[in-house]
């Protein structure tokens, strides 16, 4: 624990953020260690994205202590590629390094988009666009990579491929990752540590010791899944399969 504290990339103490009458974050504490892959779970409206935006420096109105050491990069839910810039120009945009062209080529090669470097973003498939967005984030070689549900709009097969890609990139570059998601299985497949955000605070924490690549039906993961779903307030014995229960939004 002591080593973790000394190598933190983000420290959050008592973070509070309200929108009008509604308090979304209520004195939240969070530490993120260097190179650690953390998943943040929560129902919709629980403040996951609010926390991520605060860490990304996009929210000036959040109160409390928030310290991020080192560089941050964000991949958003929708890829947010600039439509009037070709893919390579999107990745090079704002890239402040001696040789942005070389860095861009490397990032594109890593996500397997070398051939699409000259394409217009509007001609990319959903998976390609999201990979381009990841390449843009990684080209900055961030110490903290914030992922705001970047896989939620992808189809199931593409999602699996992109999951593997993210794990591979993380293994190579070792940024600390904070993945915001509402998908319990996604968190279990990717993260070292899973946090549950509930009523404006981190209400639950699970460390995952299972080695990667992880099999979905690993007994440890099965019991973790049940615990996390319970923490999210989803009953698993009501005849719902975990898959179905994994996305609370779908039930509405």
């Amino acid at each position: 624990m002591a080593t973790r504290i000394s190598r933190r990339v983000a420290t959050v103490r008592g973070l509070t953020r309200g929108f009008g009458e509604r308090t979304v974050l209520a004195g939240l504490d969070l530490d993120i260690a260097h190179g650690e892959f953390t998943a943040l779970l929560g129902r919709s409206g629980s403040g996951k994205s609010t926390l991520l935006r605060a860490l990304a420096g996009l929210d000036g109105a959040a109160e409390g202590e928030l310290e991020v050491t080192g560089s941050v990069a964000v991949a958003f839910q929708e890829p947010r590629l600039v439509p009037w810039k070709r893919v390579d120009a999107n990745i090079a945009l704002g890239l402040d390094v001696p040789d942005p062209g070389e860095r861009t080529r490397r990032a594109l090669a890593e996500v397997g988009l070398t051939e699409r470097a000259g394409a217009w973003p509007l001609t990319l498939s959903g998976g390609e666009a999201q990979r381009a967005s990841l390449a843009r984030a990684l080209a900055r070689e961030p110490e903290l990579l914030l992922l705001d549900e970047p896989f939620s709009a992808l189809d199931a097969l593409t999602r699996i491929t992109v999951h593997q890609l993210v794990l591979r990139l993380w293994a190579v570059h070792r940024p600390a990752v904070l993945l915001v998601t509402h998908d319990v299985d996604e968190a279990l497949a990717l993260a070292d540590r899973v946090l549950v955000l509930h009523e404006g605070r981190i209400a639950h924490e699970e460390l995952i010791g299972v080695a990667r690549p992880r099999h979905r039906d690993h007994p440890d993961l099965t019991s973790l899944r049940t615990r996390l779903l319970t923490a999210l307030g989803v009953s698993t014995d009501a005849g719902l399969t975990p898959d179905r229960a994994a996305t609370p939004e779908e039930q509405r």
Binding site: G57, L58, R80, G94, D96
Partner: peptide, 25 residues
């Protein structure tokens, strides 16, 4: 506005924001 937000996370300055995002948009 989402592109303007993106520009902030990419650490674009105001001039670069106008040049790369606002004017072409």
């Amino acid at each position: 506005g989402k592109l303007a937000e993106l520009a902030r996370t990419l650490k674009l300055g105001r001039a670069a924001l106008v040049r790369h995002i606002v004017l072409p948009g």
